[in-house]
């Protein structure tokens, strides 16, 4: 029972992490119909940005975190402006090839600078953060993940539900010509979704870096997991991305805990294939509203 609860907590916090980063992926897709194959590289860039600032420049952790967040937000903006915007209106395959190209380029640059080794962050999470209930021990990193994950989800939920900018973003995803007719800056919405995506990726990348160490290959392959997550959740559903993230996180930890650690990485993709066979639009894809 304790083991079960422990896996549950680990799985949930990992799941929230996937959910948060999948949010970025879904947002780009919803607003501009672009599938971002550089998702994992964005995770890695964020993680390395934080590594440079915290371990190399030895900035205070909070400052390093804040700068990483701002820096990746700006990076997302620049990537959209420089690479994606010239391709607006081009065929889907060209845009996909572009994001694949971006992924290769980013990965190459990071390998050049940081090599393929595992780097470590300085230990900064206070031990007091870890929790104990009887025999269950939750390491501080999982507690932190849990808290940060939920915090981000709430912040984004509020942003999309109540803020004007969030509502404009949803309007573009919903009906682009109508949004344009009301003066919504559609291109700015695209840029903003890339910026937010890069930011949430950086956040997830840092936490994954704390858990597993910072490594280019590792982080970019974790980025691929966004596909099972969003396909489970439905490509166009933010709520679905969250549920999808949590399900994949739980599946992974439970497979790792009860079946075998080597199966752990494979399970999400097996689930992906099964889901695609039964429900091609994902489990939680938007229900099309049709009027009679």
């Amino acid at each position: 029972m304790e083991f079960f609860l422990q896996l549950l907590v680990n799985g949930l916090s990992l799941g929230f992490l996937y959910a948060v980063s999948a949010l970025g992926f879904v947002m780009i897709f919803k607003s501009s119909s672009v599938l971002n194959f550089a998702h994992g590289e964005l995770l890695a860039i964020g993680a390395f940005m934080f590594l440079v600032l915290s371990a190399w420049a030895k900035l205070p952790i909070i400052l390093a975190f804040a700068i990483t967040m701002i820096g990746s937000f700006a990076l997302g903006f620049v990537v959209e402006r420089l690479f994606l915007r010239p391709l607006i209106g081009e065929a889907l395959i060209e845009v996909i090839m572009l994001t694949v190209g971006l992924a290769i380029m980013f990965k190459g640059i990071m390998l050049f600078i940081f090599g393929g080794d595992i780097h470590d962050y300085p230990k900064f999470l206070p031990e007091g953060l870890s929790m104990e209930w009887g025999a269950i021990q939750i390491p501080s990193v999982y507690v932190a993940t849990f808290v940060i994950g939920i915090l981000f989800l709430i912040i984004f939920g509020l942003f999309f539900k109540y803020s004007s900018q969030g509502i404009y973003m949803r309007s573009v995803a919903d009906n682009q010509p109508a949004a344009l007719s009301l003066g919504v800056h559609v291109k700015r919405v695209f840029a903003l979704s890339w910026a937010i995506a890069a930011l949430v990726c950086a956040m997830s990348g840092i936490v994954l870096g704390i858990i597993n160490g910072v490594n280019v290959h590792e982080l970019s392959s974790i980025g691929l997991k966004v596909f099972p997550v969003v396909i489970l959740g439905g490509l166009d559903s933010i709520g679905g991305a969250i549920i999808g993230g949590v399900i994949i996180g739980l599946l992974e930890t439970f497979t790792g805990g009860y079946i075998s650690t080597s199966l752990r990485e494979v399970i999400p993709y097996i689930v992906l294939v099964i889901i695609l066979m039964v429900r091609p639009y994902g489990l939680f894809g938007l229900v099309e509203i049709e009027r009679v």
Binding site: S164, I167, Y168, R170, S171, D174, N175, A178, A179, L182, G183, V184, H185, L286, I289
Partner: peptide
């Protein structure tokens, strides 16, 4: 905007 509420639709008019 199908998936926005009536009031949210109106708010897009403030863009």
């Amino acid at each position: 905007f199908k998936y926005l509420t009536v009031e949210e639709n109106l708010r897009v008019g403030t863009a």
